[in-house]
């Protein structure tokens, strides 16, 4: 599941590059944090959207894995977000897909860009 999430994360970066979100999320920013958290949210969205049947242990494992890829290099231009923020982003994407099924991917993209 972690690998699926990482693939979705990278795909979300492609979406950013081919849409206006890349500019919106990098304007005035010192780090890549917002770009990465945006992609984390969409990873969670993808995992939640798939009609898969996850056990609680699998969700626990995904959360721990995602948390482990965070970093604390706040001033580094390559800073990708703290473990807490990265976990929160992927969880909220998952929750958005599961609980707000009336909204599609476009709404998910807009919502996360506005509230990051």
């Amino acid at each position: 599941m972690f690998i699926k999430g990482i693939c979705a994360h990278q795909f979300a970066h492609i979406v950013q590059f081919f849409s206006g979100f890349y500019e919106r999320l990098t304007k005035g920013q010192q780090t890549k944090k917002l770009l990465v958290l945006y992609a984390d949210f969409l990873s969670g969205y993808y995992i939640g959207l798939r009609k898969m049947h996850y056990t609680s242990a699998e969700l626990l494992s995904l959360g721990r894995s995602w948390e482990s890829i965070g970093d604390s290099s706040y001033t580094d231009p390559q800073h990708h977000g703290t473990p807490e923020k990265r976990l929160l982003a992927v969880e909220q994407g998952y929750r958005f897909a599961r609980q707000r099924q009336e909204f599609g991917i476009k709404a998910a993209c807009e919502v996360v860009a506005r509230y990051l």
């Binding site: 609680s56 242990a57 969700l59 626990l60 995904l62 721990r64 976990l87 969880e91 998952y94």
Partner: peptide
């Protein structure tokens, strides 16, 4: 903290 609402 929980993970996706699930506590370790």
């Amino acid at each position: 903290r929980s993970y996706f609402g699930v506590c370790p």
